[in-house]
Design a protein around this nucleic acid. Structure first.
Lengths: 142, 142
DNA sequence: CTACGAGTTAGAGCCGACTCGAGGTCAAAC
DNA sequence: GTTTGACCTCGAGTCGGCTCTAACTCGTAG
């Protein structure tokens, strides 16, 4: 497969694929054809898809590289690879919890605004005009 | 409250607080004492905590600034503030889904390794020595 | 034959959000 | 009266991960 095809299949730009090769993210050296163009295997596409997930969940390139290095070395490195994965799993789980916390705050504010806006539009049914300055309650609304 | 106290309370560094002021993230101009030092109110601490959540969930500084500007303008801007919040809520929800997808992939691999390692250690009970080269099965394990 | 499209390299540039450093002011403690 | 520590401003530096550019090489189609 050419770099363009792999780019299509993985959603990673050709630039990024070359960059990843340079960064040592591939498990095996990328093969080339007679003209020096990269040739990718299905297996590499699979690996790149995994890489994409690791990246999108915040694993750093050095960590992915380390993992790839271990996979390259093969047998005997499983324990460390496992460790890397478990650490990342924990990290992502934390991330999700943080995000959920933020989401709760945001939802709280959204609900507040929804209420406020509903009340506002109810108001404008009673009074006349949108610029009517109503009594502003104690706390500023931000 | 001094910048140091607010830093404590919000978890944002003093550098970051000054930076945020400069970036126009505060709803009102930050007050100063006679010596030119910043004085913060409880309200501002509350807002900064919200900012921290917005940031940690990936809202950009320009978006937070916009929101703060609208809050500063006060009445009549609620609808747009609401919109900003709803858009961000949707974004965070998407983020969580993506993260969950990545987490599923990672968990799948973790499970695979757990299995593999359990089998490996079972092997080493039967054979003698850790470097014994067993028959490598078809697919490379990465 | 030449134009096109898809690839190649090395290296520079970009972006957001901090983060840090230098050099200075001020108030209170010793 | 000087030392400490917390603060100030301004501007530069950092970081990761791309992203883009320029100049070049191929192989094929018209």
């Amino acid at each position: 497969m050419s770099i363009g095809e792999v780019s299509e299949l993985t959603g990673l730009s050709a630039h990024t694929l070359r960059f990843y090769e340079q960064e040592g993210l591939f498990v095996e050296a990328v093969r080339r054809n007679s003209a020096g163009r990269r040739l990718f295997t299905e297996q590499e596409v699979g690996w790149l898809r995994v890489c994409a997930k690791l990246r999108s969940s915040g694993m750093s390139l050095p960590d992915i590289r380390r993992y790839a290095e271990l996979a390259r070395e093969g047998q005997g490195t499983e324990a460390e690879r496992f460790e890397i994965l478990r650490r990342h799993e924990a990290k992502v789980t934390r991330q999700m919890a943080d995000l959920q916390e933020a989401l709760d705050v945001i939802k709280g504010k959204v609900a507040l605004y929804a209420e406020h806006l509903a009340a506002g539009s109810a108001d404008s049914l009673w009074r006349d005009g949108p610029t009517c300055p109503s009594t502003v309650p104690a706390g500023r609304q931000d």
